[in-house]
Simulated scan of single mutants.
Amino acid sequence: MLGNVSELDLRLIRVFLAVVEAGGISAAQTALNTTQPTISAQLATLESRLGFRLCERGRAGFSVTSKGSQFLEAARRLMAAAEGFRVEVQHINRKISGNINIGLLGQIDPVANKKIALAIARLRSHHEGLYFHFTELSSSFLEEKLINGHLDLAIGYFWHRLANIDYFSLFQETQIAYCGPTHPLFDKVGVLNSEDVREHDWVWPSHPLPEMPAPTSIDRLTALTDSMDGAALLILSGQHLGFLPQHYAARHEALGQLHPLNPEQLRYEVGFHAAVRHSARQREAVSAFLAELMAVFGAPE
């Protein structure tokens, strides 16, 4: 006789549980896909190994004994633990593979880039068969390629906020208005206000953001571009004023090529988002990468 529960045959315990759930040996035949004599023999074997009777069966009907009731609760806990173990092992062995096509706005803050890289590293440390394809695009093209399925996920700032795309906030970028050394206002930079700069030409994003109202009338927005480098060249030329990300302009400012008009007043905080089509979120690889991004940026999904 074996009294050690750890040595019991799990298959026999499952037979007992099935009989209890069915309410008797005869009723359990269909669930167990076997005959009544076989079930009776399996119950007898289990009882023999336990050293006590689990249930009464016969003409008087089926009933669980007092010890059988105690064993029943323990058996259910054991089966639940076994199922939890199975799921956990399956998760350990589960691998995500395939490609993720990701679009990025150019010239992202290095600090944010490092976090995106961390999300990639964390995901690939568990799923080596996952491959990333990156494309650098302007904000408008990011949304367009998301919609037509050329991209699975995009990281940038977006102005459409389309209904079939989900947007997840990642981080804020500081945009400051700058002036080049040959511009007429350069000698006054640092203290200029909105009225001082209103009558000058500006370079402006082709697709403006809701966080950034235009600093002047539309006829003074004489250059439109989605290129950060293009905007910087126009400002450096001395012909235009314009906003640039603070981290991007810092190198020009250090060389004396650009200077903020008024960093306390002429500035905006622009939100960067991860954008994903509703349908793309159903893909396991995309969903996993999005979860890692939310984790490294500390943002709720």
Rank of each mutant, 00 (worst) to 15 (best):
K188P: 00
Y157H: 12
Q175G: 00
E173V: 14
P181N: 06
T174W: 03
L185V: 10
F168E: 01
R161A: 12
I176L: 14
A177I: 11
H160W: 01
A163F: 06
Y178H: 09
F186G: 04
Q175P: 00
H160V: 05
D166K: 14
Q175K: 01
N164C: 07
Q175W: 15
G180C: 06
L185Q: 09
P184R: 10
C179D: 01
Y157V: 07
E173L: 11
I176Y: 05
S169T: 04
I165C: 07
G180L: 04
Q172S: 02
K188I: 00
N164K: 13
T174H: 11
H160N: 08
F186C: 05
Q172D: 10
H160L: 07
H160I: 03
L170R: 11
Y178N: 03
F186L: 06
H183R: 09
D166I: 08
I165N: 09
H183N: 10
P181T: 04
S169F: 14
D166V: 11
L153A: 02
F168R: 07
A177E: 08
Y157G: 00
Q172P: 00
E173F: 03
T174S: 10
L170M: 10
I155M: 05
F171T: 03
Q172E: 11
Q175I: 07
L170I: 13
L185F: 08
R161K: 13
F186K: 02
G156Q: 12
F186V: 06
L153T: 05
A177G: 11
I165G: 08
T182P: 00
W159P: 03
R161N: 10
C179R: 00
H160R: 15
Q172G: 01
L153E: 05
F186D: 05
N164V: 13
R161G: 04
F186E: 02
I165D: 05
A154V: 14
I155N: 05
L170G: 12
E173M: 13
A163P: 00
A154G: 15
K188V: 00
H160A: 08
F171A: 09
Q175Y: 15
F171C: 08
K188L: 11
Q172K: 09
S169G: 00
F158T: 03
F158A: 04
I165V: 15
H183Q: 10
A163N: 11
Q175N: 07
F168T: 08
H160F: 01
P181Q: 04
D166G: 02
C179T: 06
A163I: 11
F168D: 01
W159N: 15
L185R: 10
I155C: 04
P184Q: 09
F168L: 07
W159D: 12
F186I: 07
N164F: 04
P181L: 09
D187P: 00
Y178R: 04
F158E: 02
H183P: 11
W159Q: 13
H183S: 10
Q172L: 02
C179W: 00
I176R: 03
N164D: 15
Q175V: 07
D187E: 15
L170S: 09
K188E: 10
Y157N: 10
F168A: 02
L153K: 04
E173H: 06
I155V: 15
